[in-house]
């Protein structure tokens, strides 16, 4: 078991206290792809933020590779994010002032045991675009740079928040295939948020959320290659 979350509760107080998570729980094995499905407001992003160490739960426990991250202080969470977790965002979030290679290098610089930059660039098929700035890349290419940036630190867990949300179908399929290759090639455990039910076909585990809880958790014995998914 790489990820284990249980009893997670979280509320936001913006004048009115709004519960977002109400005892959410999930478990994901090492080197697996997990997909979190659910409507807007169901608590998917909050659950991922807590697992990723960028937000704190009010209650509950998260363990990643045996480390109870809900007990970590701020410095501990920074180190956890630096060494153990990679993030892929919906809108790529590349630093516009840095080239593709430098966006990856900035993570490589702060990590203890990073992979070679050229290796990860080759893994996402962007060796030729290393010196291009984000504005010179297509959306799909930017997302592949974001994937390379996330995996260069050789993370235990790759968290993807709607990684295809801003892409067309063909490019989305390409990015999903890329994630699947990362999972296979590097053995990286991936937890992905999506609205797209079809994406669940490529996952080993599927978590359906509603009203701050994981309603159903199902295992998929035969994940489908991303290239064969259609929607």
């Amino acid at each position: 078991m790489l990820v284990s979350a249980s009893g997670l509760a979280k509320s936001y107080d913006t004048g009115v206290v709004t519960p977002v998570l109400r005892g959410a729980a999930l478990e994901l094995d090492r080197s697996r792809i997990g997909v979190i499905l659910g409507p807007s407001g169901s608590g998917k992003s909050t659950l991922m933020n807590i697992i990723g160490g960028v937000d704190r739960a009010d209650e509950g426990v998260v363990e990643v590779d045996g480390e109870r991250i809900t007990d970590l202080d701020d410095d501990g969470l920074v180190e956890y994010r630096r060494e153990s977790v990679g993030f892929v965002f919906q809108f790529y979030n590349l630093v516009p002032n840095l080239t593709a290679g430098e966006n990856i290098e900035v993570v490589s610089n702060i990590s203890k045991q990073p992979l070679a930059i050229d290796e990860v660039l080759a893994a996402v098929g962007l060796t030729e675009k290393k010196n291009r700035f984000p504005r010179e890349l297509s959306g799909g290419e930017q997302q592949r740079v974001a994937i390379a940036r996330a995996i260069v630190k050789n993370p235990k867990l790759l968290l993807c928040d709607e990684p295809t949300g801003a892409l067309d179908i063909a490019t989305s399929r390409d990015v999903l295939a890329q994630l699947q290759r990362v999972n296979t090639q590097f053995g990286t455990t991936i937890l992905m948020i999506t609205h797209n039910v079809a994406v669940a076909e490529m996952a080993h585990a599927v978590f359906r959320m509603r009203d701050g809880e994981v309603e159903h958790a199902t295992q998929n014995a035969e994940p489908v290659p991303a290239e064969r998914i259609s929607w």
Binding site: V78, E83, V85, G86, F87, N93, L94, N97, V107, I110
Partner: peptide, 18 residues
């Protein structure tokens, strides 16, 4: 102006002191 970029770098593991 670079607040969002800094937030990204923080999210991917850069410390405050860095």
């Amino acid at each position: 102006q670079r607040g969002h970029d800094l937030a990204v770098v923080r999210a991917i593991g850069a410390s405050r002191s860095y």
